[in-house]
Design a protein around this nucleic acid. Structure first.
Length: 435
RNA sequence: CGGGGUGUAGCUCAGUAUGGUUAGAGUACCUGGUUUGGGACCAGGGGGCCGAAGGUUCGAGUCCUUUCACCCCGACCA
């Protein structure tokens, strides 16, 4: 993409209501814009990042044997009345009426719809297990949406549901999904922990949360610094008073405070903040029983499906990546999530030699399937650098003054270091760096 | 859902206590020129139903009423 033809409306200042780094930088960098409370538009850069995350989620799930579907976003209210969740979810479900005055709900989650989909279509134990998922819009009418993409009302979530003939097989799938989720977050380049968690309103027993470690996280975790153990404080501290006291403590104090308990591996435990980006539950037969979704077992007896459910907050991940990876200048995308991995900056667009080298490199990298931006805008050097730092390209090739000496620079967004490279070898150097 | 706050140019905000020329600044944008290694400079220019609707008044961005929207703290929640 050429910067001169792109739609990336960056700004020097962020709206005053943005408080979190991810919110500020995603707005300033021209990734998203706000449409209303908890409602966001994704502009070209934001859309690319979202699609990259989505693609990684899909690839890993597909290779673990999951099947992608797409359920309708608008659902008849009867679906929710049958499971009794109309009451349970209350005002979080946005209800709307059609021209015939029939009531509908914008899907906040899809256990019911997925059970209905499978019910009477999968009727034998021979067709189990089955793991269906979708990556689709959800709407939860939060009392107080905030923090940009972190807690929107409309958001993109991957929700998966598995169906099994017995509990053992459901637990097996649960562990498979735990491993699959680890692969996904590792590929995204994130520092994360898997923690034991409460099951909340979704119901069921046995649940694990996946948290991206970041100072601005809303959840307080206890993590071991040597092994990968982690737990939500809600599960390891028993008294309400203790939990409330911890929630009231500032993050700085928490980081300092000692935990008497030791990890099973013998090492010290510490408090950290986390952003929940994934949650997996063992549901059992809660929904299949309520909705009378049965299959026939080996003896021809009807049994409700054993189920598990798996969620990943795809749009929330866009924000979480930035919460964990940013500095005072802007975003620092991981290689797997950057909208463009390489930014070729022509410092002075009036310098023919700079333009020629930029164009040549741009074509060459494109031909090598590198996601590359050519900054051919008429701005000055300083402006372009600030812009590149705000957007957060992992690498910027600076074609500038040093070209007279046959040199260009490669700026590493993460380390903020500049290295000089011969103009004749820059192609192979950059190909080596992005590997 | 309780408590608090804010709506004026694309963005950040003055102006509102005490009503009074044609509503301002910075930034962004357009033109021309000078610049070209860390968000340049000079000159000129476009852009506003002062959130909306009523009201008071000779006169309302400013006062009154209603309403809508957004934000913050808390409770709740992926």
């Amino acid at each position: 993409m050429r910067r001169s033809r792109a739609f990336i409306p960056t700004t020097k200042e962020a709206p005053s209501d943005a408080t979190l780094p991810s919110h500020k930088f995603l707005l300033r960098g021209g990734f998203i814009n706000q449409q209303g409370a908890g409602l966001y538009n994704f502009m070209p850069l934001g859309k690319i990042v979202l699609e990259k995350i989505r693609a990684i989620v899909k690839e890993e799930l597909d290779s673990a044997g999951c099947l992608e579907v797409q359920l309708s976003f608008v659902t008849p209210i009867g679906l929710w009345e049958r499971s009794g969740r109309c009451e349970a979810m209350g005002k979080e479900m946005l209800r709307i009426k059609d021209r015939h005055e029939n009531e509908f709900v914008l899907s906040p989650t899809n256990e019911e719809a997925m059970v209905e989909l499978v019910k009477n279509r999968v009727t034998s134990y021979k067709d189990l297990p089955l793991n269906l998922y979708q990556i689709n819009t959800k709407f939860r009418d939060e009392a107080r949406p905030r923090y940009g993409l972190m807690r929107g009302r409309e958001f993109l979530m991957k929700d998966g549901y598995s169906f099994h003939s017995c509990q053992e097989d459901m637990v097996r799938e649960f562990h498979l999904m735990e491993e699959t989720y680890k692969k996904i977050f590792t590929r995204l380049g994130l520092d994360f922990r898997v923690v034991e968690a409460d099951s909340g309103a979704i119901g069921g027993t046995g649940s694990k949360e996946f948290h991206v470690l970041a100072n601005s996280g809303e959840d307080t975790l206890v993590v071991c610094e040597t092994c990968d153990y982690g737990a939500n404080i809600e599960t390891i501290f028993e008294s309400e008073e203790e939990i409330d006291a911890l929630k009231a403590t500032s993050y700085e104090e928490l980081l300092e405070s000692k935990i008497s308990k030791k990890c099973e591996c013998g090492a010290e435990l510490h408090f950290r903040k986390g952003i929940e980006v994934g949650h997996i539950f063992q549901l059992g037969t809660k929904y299949s029983s309520a909705l009378e979704a049965h299959f026939n077992d080996e003896n021809g007896r009807a049994k409700p499906f054993e189920m598990a459910t798996f969620g990943i907050g795809v749009s929330r991940l866009v924000a979480a990546i930035i919460e964990q990876n940013h500095d005072e200048e802007g975003c620092i995308w991981t290689k797997a999530t950057a909208p463009y991995v390489v930014n070729i900056m022509i410092s002075n667009i009036k310098d023919v030699n700079q333009v020629n080298l930029g164009e040549e490199l741009y074509e060459k990298l494109k031909a090598s399937n590198v996601e590359v931006m050519l900054d051919d805008s008429k701005e000055r050097f300083g402006f372009k650098m600030k812009d590149a730092e705000l957007i957060g390209f992992p690498y910027t090739i600076i074609i500038g003054k040093e070209l007279e000496n046959g040199l260009v620079q490669v700026y590493d967004r993460k380390t903020r270091e500049n290295i000089s490279v011969g103009a004749d070898t820059i192609y192979s150097k950059i190909m080596e760096l992005i590997q």
